[in-house]
Nucleic acid binder design. Structure first.
Lengths: 233, 233
DNA sequence: CAGGTTAATATGTATATACTTATAATCCAT
DNA sequence: ATGGATTATAAGTATATACATATTAACCTG
């Protein structure tokens, strides 16, 4: 019974994975507790803990104190996604990167943006529309709003040299953010900026980042047709 | 100098985060090594390790043996994404779930699918087109190919009662998968199935799952207009 | 039997210690 | 200089032990 050589948390993880895959432990079922597995695998409980914690992070098993550990009913639910950093993404493909600022203004935002940014009625925000080009061809454009109350230094930043995203990443810490991914239909404006046809389906990322209760910036990235975001598990 | 009460890895993590956010440790800079931080925080090195490892997992810091730990240049690069399980997603919103099978056949696939599934020239695959409805309205449809060599039991499964995805999740273990997210333009077929207008932008997920070198299944989910996938960091 | 208290238990975490491994830095011979 | 061996270092990991914490399960008590 007492198994073979399981002296690394990876090997324990691999064996647990094998049993789950082989349906020795079926979805929804409890698996033995850490202490029992440690004895079986002839290793320390901390090693088993490390292995199981890693599996729990991926969503393959569910763990609760006192209750125990069970195989998740829907084994695959989480994937790690790399958020694109436009410049590196383009340069990583061996293409040249360039960007140009289409709009730079300080205005009172439309109601939807005001709601998203949680700013007062009279507040004016920095509004930037930036086009990013790969090998000279439109790749994505960003429609961005920045709250100068959260980022006073934005007033003096030179956003011609460095894109707003790069400047913000380098100069403004933030605590949280949320992302959403969707599709839209290219209208006249998008078709013009991205040099595509009206009515094409475009991939869109909306992102906002905040500190405490203040929204720092909110941006919509609209990608040229053909863009794909990829991940593995 | 020797800090206050840092007796949990979370508190160490919080303090490291604070220093990064406060730019006490700037992007690209090295931070003190684990041993030094352990002394400063008056805790065990393992505790510091746990905290830093968690931060490295999110992409906020980069770590390498011997070299040390530095603050990442592009702080935010990874997000955990919940892969939607259609039925739960719909029922979770309090809507009723229903699905119907539009196509169920066993045929030799077109060349692009054959390449993706890595099957031989003569091989026939199970092809399923399934529409998922929320409160009776089209929500998403899946165009799926299954390799019966990798999943012999598929022949006898009743895919009317349970959707192919649910059946596969419950019955077929797999080792890896890849996902890609993109947008497409609704053509005649998509418009018909999803009851939307031709030319609308649709959100698309392509997914395949495999075991060793065998591709088990490959599916394209095409969502009705308005779908958004959301995540936080 | 309902409802609240208590005990039992599995995971979660902290610690000291020891050893492993990747690799940057140094040294040395050519 | 150049390239190859050596060394020093920081992260990575394993382990025994101890204690914390969230729950479940068992036990009262009215």
């Amino acid at each position: 019974m007492s198994g073979g050589e399981f002296n690394s948390w990876q090997s324990v993880q691999a064996e647990v994975l094998r049993r789950i895959n082989a349906r020795e432990w079926k979805p929804g079922e409890f698996i033995p507790n850490e202490a029992e597995l440690a004895i079986e695998f002839n290793c320390a409980r901390a090693t088993v803990n490390r292995a199981l914690r890693a599996l729990a992070d991926t969503g393959l098993i569910d763990r609760r104190r006192k209750a125990g550990t069970r195989v998740a009913l829907h084994p695959v639910r989480k994937a790690t996604l790399a958020i694109p950093v436009i410049r590196s993404e383009i340069e990583g493909k061996g293409q040249s990167y360039r960007h140009s600022v289409l709009v730079e203004e300080r205005v009172a935002p439309p109601p939807d943006v005001r709601a998203r940014m949680r700013t007062g009625p009279g507040d004016r925000l920095v509004h930037l529309v930036t086009l990013h080009l790969a090998d000279g061809k439109p790749y994505v454009f960003g429609d961005r709003w920045i709250n100068p109350k959260a980022v006073p230094a934005i007033e003096t930043a030179d956003l011609k040299a460095q894109s707003a995203n790069e400047w913000l990443v380098a100069n403004v810490p933030f605590e949280g953010g949320d992302f959403s991914f969707s599709a839209m239909t290219a209208g006249k404006r998008e078709a013009e900026i991205l040099a595509c046809k009206e009515g094409e389906g475009l991939f869109v990322i909306d992102r906002s980042t905040w500190n405490q209760d203040q929204v720092i910036t909110s941006v919509r990235l609209t990608f040229a047709p053909g863009y794909r975001m990829h991940t593995e598990i």
